[in-house]
Design a protein around this nucleic acid. Structure first.
Lengths: 192, 192
DNA sequence: GCTGCTAACTTGACACCGACAAGATTGGAG
DNA sequence: CTCCAATCTTGTCGGTGTCAAGTTAGCAGC
């Protein structure tokens, strides 16, 4: 909080994660450079490695943060009394609002898959996901057990989110991802 | 076809694309190195750049090849008289069989988005996709127009494929992606 | 206030990579 | 046989990730 940069940054870890999210949002995970992050944060080129050990370590931390944010989002819609449809829209809202996190969370080749923090965050998110699906009214699941129903919901929501953030969807869908998501997802939950 | 390597490789472009697919299958697109591909093909480190101009150029060519293969797959199921469900399973089959292509096709930050060959291949694939969805029997679309129905189908299929190849799905689904896909996708097409 | 300790950060170095320029080799058209 | 264009090589440059060793800052205990 001083006007001159102290030797100890004080909050470098969080600063680097924020800078990484910004850089990835701008130009994707492939173009990310630890040295560029260091420059943005005003520290030496090797400082990031001290906090994350590795480039994969930084991306792993970002992914873990992402799973936490996703769990937060799902818990929020659940607390607001929303159903599966709302949870699905929340999933898409998360992906669009935190594109950088989302684009890293499901690319295992960029991450340390066994990192304990990552695993814990994944567990929390998948728990929140399961809770959201558990709110489906029973008649909508007839003919398929709950596990399959959950995977169907996850698939359609994840697919739409992925296609949206990758820009693969047709432009005539409009600019509002949540509204578009609601329309596209609805057929699965309200057949007929 | 001679036993000694001629100065002109003769088929370097295809060889490099195959090597790239193999390398990406092994360790993901991020770890791909043009120099490593050159080593695998037994050529000098700058040879790849001559054919593709750029690392993005190589990945773009791979993505274009991927869209072509996807269109082939969809055309094949259509020619075999399959319905939307079969087309969806075919989509997943393609993603699993050509994981390297698939993992590059929807990452625009790795590609030259305006490459004419890529655009042509995308057009062909999306045409095949639209044809597949058009085979949906009318009653299954009531309440939603054809465009939305197509996006729903694409979303659930793309989501399942993405989650499968990223290893995010629970292990108790078994090892057969096509059978699992059929179960997960069905609820969208055969509600009730 | 001083000492010692640990975490945070810097400096320097090395191998690797993508990209570019310039040269060498080849096959084929005329 | 000549010439040309495409293919591939060689050499080089700046940038990057990672490691090792050194430097600084905060902090507990005396």
């Amino acid at each position: 909080m001083r006007d001159t940069r102290p030797y100890h940054h004080g909050d470098l870890r969080r600063t680097l994660l924020a800078a990484a999210a910004e850089a990835i949002t701008e130009s994707g995970p492939a173009a990310l450079s630890l040295r560029d992050l260091a420059r943005r944060a005003g520290v030496s080129h090797a400082a990031p490695a001290h906090h994350f050990g590795d480039k994969a370590g930084l991306l792993t931390a970002l992914a873990a943060e992402g799973f936490g944010l996703l769990a937060d989002e799902l818990d929020r819609t659940r607390a607001a009394g929303g159903g599966v449809l709302d949870a699905g829209v929340g999933y898409v809202r998360f992906a669009v609002a935190h594109r950088a996190h989302f684009s890293v969370m499901f690319q295992p080749d960029l991450l340390n898959r066994t990192d304990p923090e990552l695993l814990a965050a994944q567990d929390r998110a998948s728990g929140a996901l399961r809770s959201a699906v558990a709110t489906v009214e029973a008649p909508q699941r007839r003919g398929a057990d709950a596990r399959i129903a959950g995977l169907s919901a996850w698939s359609i929501v994840h697919g739409f989110a992925t296609l949206w953030v990758s820009g693969a969807l047709p432009a005539d869908l409009g600019g509002d991802p949540e509204e578009a998501a609601r329309q596209v997802i609805r057929p699965l939950f309200a057949p007929g």
